[in-house]
């Protein structure tokens, strides 16, 4: 009985949390797409600087990690495939696993580490130093001013980063292909592209779009939830990262199941 109550309470808590994330996202959508037509500022400049920070500055580390990841995938695939004399399938194995799953996921994880945590820390610090209160007394909505530009930046940049990650992953795989599996670079790339359907690319990008919304909502929500004191900022930052990773995996699962069901029909 006690256990049932505890499970019930945590389920309710979880639902309430998802509800608050949805409210935050809905308000960010309002300030992004509807507000500017009602005379509210569009804050394009702020969105661009957020996109630079969350997107462009993530490129070096993202490139390096996904290149290595592609190489690892090739090695792991080849390990099994060569026993069946099917090493030429390395290209398609790497391409498919990168584009369908690992590209979007690893990009999301890197962006959580770089930007999701930064959102929580930035807004949390502003909460502690009364800057959020200051915005409100100046009749500037904190969601419109702080969250909406991040939101725009993330839903644009995350799919872009994912495309780049996919590309770098295939490039990493090609290094193995060219050195160890008798591919030419040209042939490796052709084999990769031939194994892909447009559907694979699109589902990956839809997922990354959803990840962008999730990461922004959690990061900002945790920032706004910060209580008083500097140590609380650290706590919300940690929580933002943990919750974001969990929710990204959950969203991933839900959409993968959805695409699976849709593909059967």
């Amino acid at each position: 009985m006690e256990l049932a109550r505890k499970i019930g309470a945590s389920v309710l808590g979880g639902l309430a949390y998802v509800g608050s994330l949805t409210t935050l996202s809905a308000r960010a959508v309002y300030f992004t797409f509807i507000g500017p037509f009602q005379g509210r500022p569009a804050r394009i400049q702020r969105s661009i600087s957020q996109a630079m920070e969350a997107g462009v500055r993530a490129l070096p580390i993202l490139s390096l990690i996904t290149f290595f990841l592609g190489l690892i995938l090739a090695l792991q695939a080849a390990y099994e495939l060569r026993r069946f004399g099917a090493i030429s399938f390395v290209a398609s194995a790497v391409a498919l696993s990168m584009i369908r799953e690992l590209g979007p996921l690893i990009t999301a994880v890197i962006v959580i580490g770089r930007s999701g945590s930064a959102f929580a820390a930035e807004i949390g610090t502003m909460k502690v130093t009364e800057e959020i209160d200051a915005l409100e007394t100046m009749a500037i909505d904190p969601i419109g001013f702080l969250v909406a530009p991040k939101f725009v930046a993330m839903i644009i940049m995350l799919p872009c980063l994912t495309i780049w990650a996919n590309f770098m992953g295939i490039l990493g795989g090609s290094l193995f292909g060219v050195l160890k599996a008798d591919f030419t670079f040209q042939r490796y790339i052709t084999a990769s592209l031939d194994s892909l359907f447009l559907r694979d690319v699109v589902t990956g990008l839809i997922k990354s779009f959803m990840f962008g919304i999730t990461i922004t909502a959690v990061g900002c929500q945790e920032g706004f939830n910060t209580g008083g004191g500097a140590e609380q900022v650290g706590r919300s930052t940690t929580k933002a990262v943990v919750v974001s990773i969990f929710l990204v995996i959950l969203v991933d699962l839900i959409f993968t199941m959805l695409f699976f069901v849709l593909a059967q029909d």
């Binding site: 930035e122 502003m126 130093t129 009364e130 800057e131 209160d133 200051a134 409100e136 007394t137 100046m138």
Partner: peptide, 27 residues
């Protein structure tokens, strides 16, 4: 009404990522 009020917070509550000029220009 709030645009007709001015508030000076205890710690200043200036936006740390903006210069002093940008802070004053914001409203």
């Amino acid at each position: 009404i709030r645009t007709r009020l001015g508030m000076s917070f205890q710690g200043g509550a200036l936006f740390g990522s903006m210069t002093v000029g940008e802070n004053v220009a914001l409203p």
